[in-house]
Each structure stands twice: as C-alpha cells, then as structure tokens.
Simulated assay, not measured.
Amino acid sequence: MHNDEKIAKYIGEAVILLTADHLGIGVEMLDIAKEVWHTKRLPDAPLLGHYASAARKAQEAVIAKGLGEQADRLGQVFYMTGEFPEPYEIVRYKDYLTTYVLRDALGDCTNGGVSSRSDSLELFAPHLSFAQVASYCLENGIDVNKAVRLVYRENLDYVHAEPIVDRGKWYMFGGNYLKTSDSRFKDLTGIRYPVPVHDRTEG
C-alpha cells in the first residue's frame, strides 16, 4: 500500500471514530482520530494497530445499535465539510433556489471549479451550515457537486457562493456568477445583482 493510500485509510478510520462519537458511542483513540483528521498525517507507528482496532470496534458498535445508515450519511457529510449537521428543516425556495451560471466570456478561469461543470447550481442560504446543506443534498438526491452556499463577509460587505465539497480547500473567485429571474433570488441573497462564485482552487 502506497503512503497516500495509507493516509486515506487512516483518515477514513478517523471519520468512523469521530462519527461514532458524534452518535454518542464511546470510542477509543478519539484524540488521535482528531489529530489525524486535522493534520492528514499517519498516527505514530506504535499506535497504528490500536488505532485500526478502535475504528473497527466503533464500526461494529454503530452497526449493533442499528445506526449504520445514519452513520454512513453523517460520515460522508463530515468528510466533505469537516463538521456534523445540526437539525434543521430546509425548505425549497425559502432556503435554496436553482440558479444559472453566467460564464466569463474569456473562458474558464475556475481551474475546474463546480461552476465550470454545470449550467445550473442549487444556491443555499447563508444561515445554513455547509454540513446541513450536504446532509440535505444526500438525503434528497441532489448532486453535492452542483450545490453551493452563500457566504457573507461582513467586514467587506460582500456576498459570494462557495462549493459544499472539499471544505478544507481555500476558494477564490473564478470569474463566473449565479443568477435567476425568480423574484425570490433577492430574498435569498439580499442582493439584486448576480452572485460571484468562489470555486477556484490552486493545485
């Protein structure tokens, strides 16, 4: 197994342990799991066997309590966003709208961002967390790669949209905007003009 594959395996085990803990199941090696998640590095060599065993026990405990399906979804949400969702009933048109991508006439500058791969994106309100949006998308069959959430930077008085996926990355403006003729657009965004999409990442 290559080192990248090992790291992916141990990050996956960290998500298992963190998810089980979130569901109220007592787990071993929780601090190590948090460290692996934040640093994306392998645990110290003497701990590897115990760490893998702790993840296996946590998975077995989740299944034994009948929480396997819920844990799978929560684990996916955490892997994408780095957080677990607080309960919230999301309502279409009040909390999100389908919007359409306005592209830069000079060509794609997003470096493969979400707005370069779809003509429409689901735009979610800023009062929702990224985890709440990801959970809603997974539960309702919405492609998370076609979902973005509004972000308001109060110090700049600036609103923009960011992807739900890969929340560990730093997103920049890639040249594209979102708009719809739906009159509820202003209610959702607080602005009348198109929303800039920050979906460009480096590397």
Rank of each mutant, 00 (worst) to 15 (best):
M80A: 12
H50A: 09
K146M: 12
L123G: 05
E154Y: 01
Y177L: 05
E122D: 05
K6C: 03
G175D: 03
I25P: 06
T39F: 00
A8G: 12
V151L: 01
A14P: 05
D4K: 14
A64H: 06
D143H: 09
Y10E: 07
H22A: 11
K179S: 03
V62K: 03
I25Q: 00
P43N: 04
S120W: 05
M172R: 09
F124T: 07
K146C: 12
H2D: 14
D44Q: 13
L156P: 00
R153K: 06
E83D: 15
F124A: 03
G24V: 11
N145H: 15
G113N: 11
D182P: 06
P85A: 14
R41D: 03
G174S: 01
M80V: 06
L128V: 04
L188T: 03
G113P: 11
V195R: 07
L48E: 13
G107F: 13
S120K: 07
A105S: 15
G141K: 08
V36K: 03
I164N: 01
M1N: 08
L48I: 07
E60L: 14
E122W: 03
D72I: 14
M172V: 01
K186N: 07
I164T: 05
L18F: 08
L48P: 00
V159W: 00
L18V: 09
G24L: 13
V133D: 04
S116D: 04
D72S: 14
D31W: 01
V144S: 06
Y96T: 10
D21W: 07
R92S: 14
K169Q: 10
E162H: 01
V148W: 03
K40R: 15
C109P: 02
K57W: 01
V159N: 00
K57T: 05
A161K: 03
G168W: 08
G12I: 02
N140R: 14
G141V: 00
N3W: 06
D187M: 09
P163T: 06
N145L: 11
A105F: 06
E5K: 09
E154F: 02
A55R: 04
A131S: 15
K6Q: 13
